Amino acid sequence: MLKFPIKNQQFVGPICIAVICIVLWIIEPLSSEYLALVRSELPRTHWWQFITANFVHTNTNHLLLNLAGVLLLWVVHGEYYKISNYLFNSLVLSFWVTFGIYIFSPTLSWYAGLSGVLHGLFVYGACKDIQHKIKFGWLLFVGIWVKIGYEQLFGADQMISDLIAANVAVDAHLYGALGGLSLVLMRIRLKQG
């Protein structure tokens, strides 16, 4: 726990995600115009937004918050990362989050940001801790669900909304966390089968 995972397989995946987000931020506003999730443009014309929306951000603060999340998750759970596994999980969670928004959150007409994916990676890492009999994993697992429950009942902190200059898409956090749990259950099932 809190060891710095410094093997290539442990940090290359997070660096790839961070670089993608930074490059897309550099070419703003063009990247958000074409890559953010715009409900009216889906699913026939701009289907790539199901993935790309997660890698664009509303402003520098939004980007920095999500990059801090990538870093924090790498420090806490990087020992479980392998390049292909991390990138696969990130892509699956990206689709899962935006598809969830598209199907179950019809009032959300625009979406950008990595926080839903980060919630999924958080749940995935907490479950890996639990599988490795690390008791702190239970605290992380319960804590994330309490946070998500609070957001679903009371909404996001207004200070964060002001900081990122957008409403926090709390539903994305829920869909990401459910996606992370689904990835864990799928891997358990594949090992048993």
Rank of each mutant, 00 (worst) to 15 (best):
M1G: 00
K3Q: 02
I6L: 00
K7Y: 12
N8W: 14
V12G: 05
G13E: 08
C16M: 14
I20E: 12
C21L: 14
V23M: 13
L24F: 01
W25V: 07
I26A: 15
E28D: 10
P29R: 13
P29D: 04
S32T: 07
S40D: 02
L42D: 06
P43F: 03
R44M: 11
T45R: 15
W48G: 05
W48N: 05
Q49A: 08
A53I: 01
F55V: 08
N59K: 03
H62P: 03
L67N: 02
L67G: 03
A68W: 14
L73Q: 10
L73N: 04
E79P: 03
Y81L: 02
I83D: 06
Y86G: 03
F88Q: 13
F99M: 01
F104L: 15
F104T: 12
S105D: 04
L108I: 06
W110M: 03
S115W: 07
G116W: 08
V123R: 01
K128P: 08
D129M: 00
F136T: 04
W138T: 06
F141K: 04
I144G: 06
W145K: 09
L153A: 15
L153V: 13
G155C: 05
G155K: 09
D162V: 09
D162G: 13
V170R: 09
A172Y: 01
G180E: 01
L181F: 12
S182A: 14
V184C: 05
L185M: 15
K191D: 07
